[in-house]
Structure formats: structure tokens, C-alpha cells
């Protein structure tokens, strides 16, 4: 799924972005637990999380995740935004809950990282 489609479906606000909105994102992963991101995710995926903290960005960088979505309109602090800019991670905020965000992306064909 293209990044711009993810942004549109989630009615997301773009906080940081250094990639083309035509970029193709292959997989999705939805969790608040960082070890699970590391365990189940693949590179080039989108992480949907309620953990609007630096940890989510740091973990995504380690796991080569390119796009992070914070749910329920949670605004991250400036350190979190700075880190995502530095790590070239696209950071989005969606007003939707994790459930709704997953539903909207799944409905349009995005799938979770295969094991």
C-alpha cells in the first residue's frame, strides 16, 4: 500500500516525513509492546501503536520500520519527533483507535507481517 493511501485512510497528520508519498509499504504490525515489534515485524512495514514515545521510534529504527502511526491522536513530545526526524522515520498521528486503524488498512488490502 502506498504511503499516501495510508495517510488518507487513517486521516493522519504527518509529523515527520522524508520519503515520497508514493513509496510502497509492504506490511503492517499493530502492537504496544516493543519486543513484539522486534519479533514479528519485517522491514519496510508500518507500525501502528498507542505507545507515543521515543521507544517506539527507537525500536522501529532497529527493526527497519519506515512508518510509525500513533493512535487516538496522541501527540508525542519533542524528543520523540526529533528522533523520528533524525532516523528518517515517517511519523503519523491518526485520530482513530488501534482497532479502527487496523480495520481501515486491512479492509483496503494491507496485511500483517508474515512470520
Amino acid at each position: 500500500m502506498r504511503l499516501k493511501e495510508i495517510i488518507r485512510l487513517l486521516d493522519a497528520v504527518v509529523i515527520t516525513n522524508s520519503r515520497d508519498s508514493e513509496a510502497e509499504i509492504e506490511w503492517a504490525c499493530a502492537t504496544d509492546l516493543m519486543s513484539d515489534v522486534l519479533y514479528y515485524s519485517r522491514g519496510n512495514s508500518v507500525l501502528i501503536t498507542g505507545l507515543a514515545k521515543q521507544q517506539a521510534i527507537r525500536t522501529s529504527d532497529i527493526a527497519d520500520i519506515k512508518v510509525v502511526v500513533f493512535t487516538r491522536g496522541k501527540e508525542p513530545d519533542t524528543q520523540t519527533i526529533e528522533l523520528s526526524r533524525k532516523k528518517k522515520i515517517t511519523l503519523l498521528i491518526t485520530p482513530y483507535s488501534m482497532f479502527t486503524a487496523c480495520g481501515k488498512l486491512y479492509e483496503k488490502g494491507l496485511r500483517c507481517c508474515p512470520e
Binding site: C29, G103, L105
Partner: peptide
């Protein structure tokens, strides 16, 4: 996964 379970249930 949570993503898939949520995705299906949403539909």
C-alpha cells in the same frame, strides 16, 4: 496477529 484479528472483526 492483532492486526489481522482487528481487521477481520472490523469488517
Amino acid at each position: 496477529s492483532a492486526f489481522e484479528t482487528a481487521g477481520k472483526l472490523y469488517q
